[in-house]
Amino acid sequence: MEDYFSDDDYYYSDRDSLDGLENEDSGPQWASKGPTSKVITKESLLAAQREDLRRVMELLSIRVHHARTLLIHYRWDVEKLFAVFVEKGKASLFAEAGVSIVEHQDLDVRPPQTVMCDICIEDLPSGETTKMDCGHCFCNNCWTEHFIVKINDGQSKRIKCMAHKCNAICDESVVRNLVSKTNPDLAEKFDRFLLESYIEDNKRVKWCPSTPHCGNAIRVEDDQFCEVECSCGVQFCFGCSLEAHSPCSCLMWELWVKKCRDESETVNWITVHTKPCPKCHKPVEKNGGCNLVSCICGQAFW
């Protein structure tokens, strides 16, 4: 997936624009292709993502990183998210996704001069520490190390707080700020992961399967999988990302393609060594003899 973005020039590195969503007026610039699908170009990716973020921010009066955490959890399905909100209420909507918006009343007017960081076990001036939304406070060096490990591990979208059993997702602006001080390249990678999440975690959006990649993604407007055409000319099945194959079903087509390529060994290896993640359906490699595996999407399963 790194290949899609080997050229960085399209990418909006303007950090302020990510935070200042309220001032952004231009919606996604769709290049319309038929009534049920739309092409999202590299240039309109950020705008399309912003649009969904803004809807959630406005409805729930929350900040951007909370909206993003919710949307990633609900796979960028705004309607589903709103339905859960109406049905179960704000508290359980937030809790499920690892969003904690707690008012921390600091009873002591003056914050303490030094804070003991439980990770490096050092006393530090409180100015060198950061308290996350959940209330857990650790030193900036430790937060930075934690973020670097998680970003390199492919977990940018769901970086959890360092406290044991704390389910809160870290504030993306804190991650961006701290990481960019020591590793500006990694901070950009982090932003790119967040941006790509709009496509990779979105059940209605898929990358165009063209090689070399045209840079576009396709969004469908309903849950019905259909054959779509990208502005680069490639036609593909939205259900399986393979070439258009109607009226043959996706499963039959997949089996046919596998049979044709005679990749039986590869297929065998995948069934023996991986399990599909129940949440995002990517194959996840089993490690060792134990059956507990965890997917980069955050789901652990047996």
Partner: peptide, 10 residues
């Protein structure tokens, strides 16, 4: 689990 994905630096 705590030696895998449930590990926390704390």
């Amino acid at each position: 689990d705590i030696l895998k994905d449930q590990w926390s630096p704390a």
